[in-house]
Design a protein around this nucleic acid. Structure first.
Length: 212
DNA sequence: TAGAATTGTCTATTACATCA
DNA sequence: ATGATGTAATAGACAATTCT
């Protein structure tokens, strides 16, 4: 029965039905909804039903498609002959197969992009939390620096009232400097003997600037 | 060389078969 | 019975190639 249907199909698929329909003059360019053509009407009249290709036919078509997605005329005729199909059927199968292949490829590319995007988003979250953590640390450091300055002012006023302090020293004959309790003096100590408080502040300012 | 015809491919859509 | 899905097939547009 299937062979009979194929025979009928081939009988109906005359050369005219393959030819490209050229739009007639004045015909609108927009797409119209397709109506049944002559061949379809004839097929309907004689009871022709669209049939699926056999597994073997599909297997061989897939094999050919795997080799080359495009279909030259000679190749189309040869495949059609081998499979007992109309060349037009082979061309249609290849066209639909290219569409499926392209759709699948787009889906795969989308999945890949989404995976990459998700990875970047996770990385972004990590970096944002790291920035928050560092900002908190910086604020804490600034608070401590402020406290140091305030104590410095207190010590200065105490000194002026004659209260000595072991944490007091001077830099190049400049203003007296004070270290807070528990603060390691060596933190600002430079081996060549140059004790430089200002350089220490610059380090903090640089750090702050890089986090802005 | 220009323009008509042909050919192949694409997108959009329809029609039909099959299955849950 | 029926809606969803897959796929064979068609229509129409367009570009490249061939023909006259």
């Amino acid at each position: 029965m299937e062979d009979d249907q194929m025979f009928l199909y081939s009988q109906q698929s005359d050369a005219n039905s393959y030819n490209q329909m050229v739009p007639t003059e004045g015909e609108t360019k927009c797409r119209r909804r397709r109506k049944k053509n002559k061949v379809e009407k004839i097929n309907e009249d004689i009871g022709f039903r669209k049939r699926k290709l056999t597994d073997e036919q599909v297997r061989l078509l897939e094999l050919n498609f795997g080799n080359e997605h495009k279909l030259e005329s000679d190749r189309k005729d040869r495949i059609a002959m081998e499979l007992g199909l109309d060349p037009r059927q082979v061309a249609v199968w290849f066209q639909n197969r290219r569409v499926r292949w392209k759709t699948k490829k787009i889906e795969e590319e989308y999945s890949e992009l989404k995976r990459a995007h998700d990875g970047v988003m996770v990385e972004k979250c990590h970096l944002q939390s790291e920035v928050s953590r560092l900002k908190e640390k910086l604020m804490e450091a600034e608070k401590q620096i402020q406290q140091l300055k305030e104590r410095s002012v207190d010590h200065t006023s105490n000194l002026s009232m004659g209260s000595p302090s072991s944490s007091c020293f001077t830099v190049d004959g400049g203003d007296p400097m004070f270290m807070p309790d528990g603060f390691d003096n060596n933190f600002f100590y430079v081996p060549n003997g140059d004790i430089n408080y200002i350089h220490g502040m610059e380090w903090v300012q640089d750090l702050y600037g890089s986090l802005q």
